[in-house]
């Protein structure tokens, strides 16, 4: 066991970055690493979400639980979440989750007095803490005509009223999906496409064209001028084997050779808006590190058995 180090130094290359979208390459590591990162992003990066709702007046058509559930699913900006406490281990409030260290209070008051239906949206939620507010998706570049009004909670008719107090708490996606900051986290192996040029030359232009078209996604392109087939977008390949089957059907097996590069991944991360996509990745790495630290620190201790069970014993060489 000793001696040889399997340590690798993964590289990250960012391809595209927006507030809620991130595409990056992760190289020089294996699937376990990539998947761990993905899983942490989905399930363990903390955010804020409404967890407790006290309804004072609800004369809307939706019932209390329904509204509470809808409120819970509204993403709140949670840049502060990493530094906040979980209310279950908050000392300041004995875990009742009502103090400033672990919770944020919201108020909602809406009443429809006109004949038109009133849309109660996430923008009607008021809080004293400006760092934790419902995510605003409206594009600042677009004109602020006010027709984009946040996430609809309920619609009120004349005379209906909704008045409530809500408390947002820190949590993780493992407990409830509302705390998951990730809308989509996915990765793919980078495909390695090698066209057998010799064999390709034996095809007529028509055959080449039909072969190129056999792929449902636009991976290959046929250059009309040079009469050559080349790979235009390797990542568009969905591992569907269609081109390989087509080549076989044409009687040219081995026309193309596609393998997945086992150590490079292309990640796509979309955030719900609770935290920036880039921050999501960073937080995920941070949390992953903490988890690994916990493993490392307890490597030889007795608590390891409590904490990690068999895994701890395994790590101690048992």
């Amino acid at each position: 066991m000793e001696g040889k180090s399997y340590q690798r130094f993964p590289k990250v290359k960012i391809r595209e970055m927006k507030d809620d979208f991130l595409k990056f390459e992760l190289r020089d590591t294996d699937a376990s690493m990539a998947n761990a990162l993905r899983r942490v992003m989905i399930a363990e990066v903390p955010t804020m979400a409404i967890d407790l709702v006290e309804i004072e007046v609800n004369s809307s058509v939706l019932n209390d639980e329904f509204i509470a559930h809808r409120l819970g699913l509204i993403p709140l900006t949670s840049d502060r979440a990493m530094s906040m406490r979980f209310s279950r281990d908050c000392d300041a409030c004995d875990g009742d989750g009502q103090c400033e260290f672990c919770s944020v209070e919201f108020h909602l008051r809406a009443k429809c007095i006109s004949d038109q239906t009133l849309d109660v949206t996430s923008k009607d939620l008021y809080t004293a803490d400006h760092t934790v507010v419902p995510v605003d998706f409206s594009d600042p570049a677009a004109d602020d005509s006010g027709d984009q009004r946040g996430i609809i909670i309920v619609k009120l008719r004349r005379g209906q009223e909704l008045r409530l107090r809500a408390i947002a708490r820190k949590g993780i996606g493992k407990d409830h999906a509302k705390w998951s900051p990730a809308a989509t986290v996915t990765f793919m192996y980078e495909p390695d496409i090698r066209i057998n040029e010799e064999l390709m030359e034996t095809l007529t232009p028509e055959e080449k064209r039909s072969w190129v078209e056999s792929s449902p996604t636009k991976v290959f392109e046929f250059d009309e001028d040079t009469q050559q087939v080349y790979v235009c977008d390797a990542e568009a390949y969905t591992y569907d084997d269609e081109v390989i089957k087509k080549a076989e059907a044409m009687g040219k097996p081995g026309l193309v050779d596609i393998t997945a590069k086992e150590d490079s991944f292309i990640f796509t991360v979309e955030s719900t808006g609770a935290i920036k996509a880039s921050q999501l990745v960073l937080n995920a790495i941070e949390i992953l590190k903490q988890k690994l630290d916990a493993v490392r620190l307890s490597e030889d201790t007795e608590e390891a058995d409590d904490q990690f069970g068999e895994l701890g014993a395994h790590m101690r060489g048992g």
């Binding site: 899983r39 990765f187 449902p216 969905t238």
Partner: peptide, 18 residues
């Protein structure tokens, strides 16, 4: 951009392998 037969290439969520 899907396969004509409705099938997709899928990764395992547990291991991350296809």
């Amino acid at each position: 951009g899907f396969s004509y037969n409705g099938k997709d290439f899928i990764y395992s969520g547990i291991t991350g392998c296809p």
